[in-house]
């Protein structure tokens, strides 16, 4: 786990590359997260809603960002994670999660570091933008 000395502005987190998201992944995540919205697991429903196919839960990508962070610092160091879902993640996509430290604040009693987060797909689509604040 990382200490303040090892984290500075510009530090990049080891990227997290995910395997292709399968329908099985979506079914498991529906059960694991409790989000049973059929748009993610039922192709008939997705088509009826005007989508070409089911697509991944936004929270699945946010959970991958959680893995990016907990693979780098102890979970107890995370103060906040905020994300905006920018594009849908189709079945079969391979998300890649990245993070870069953009600010460190040592004026507070417990220092904080701000990490800019992104998830993107091999075709260049950015599916999530976000920010995490941690105690380094």
């Amino acid at each position: 786990m990382h200490t303040a000395a090892a984290i500075e502005v510009g530090t990049t987190l080891p990227a997290l590359e995910l395997p292709a998201i399968s329908r099985t992944t979506l079914a498991l995540f529906a059960g694991g997260s409790g989000d049973h919205n059929p748009i993610h697991i039922d192709t008939d429903f997705a088509r009826d809603a005007g989508m070409p196919d089911v697509f991944a839960h936004g929270m699945l990508s946010m959970a991958y960002l959680g893995r990016l962070l907990t693979g780098w610092v102890d979970q107890r160091q995370i103060r906040s994670i905020t994300v905006r879902f920018a594009a849908v993640t189709p079945v079969g996509a391979r998300p890649r999660c990245e993070g870069t430290v953009t600010a460190i604040d040592t004026t507070t009693p417990i220092p904080t570091a701000t990490i800019e987060l992104t998830v993107h797909l091999p075709d260049g689509t950015t599916t999530l933008h976000g920010t995490a604040v941690i105690n380094p």
Partner: peptide, 17 residues
């Protein structure tokens, strides 16, 4: 309408595990 629903943003602030 559930058919038109997307998740736009999500924020989580942590105080304790």
């Amino acid at each position: 309408d559930l058919r038109r629903l997307l998740h736009g943003e999500q924020a989580v602030n942590y105080f304790r595990d």
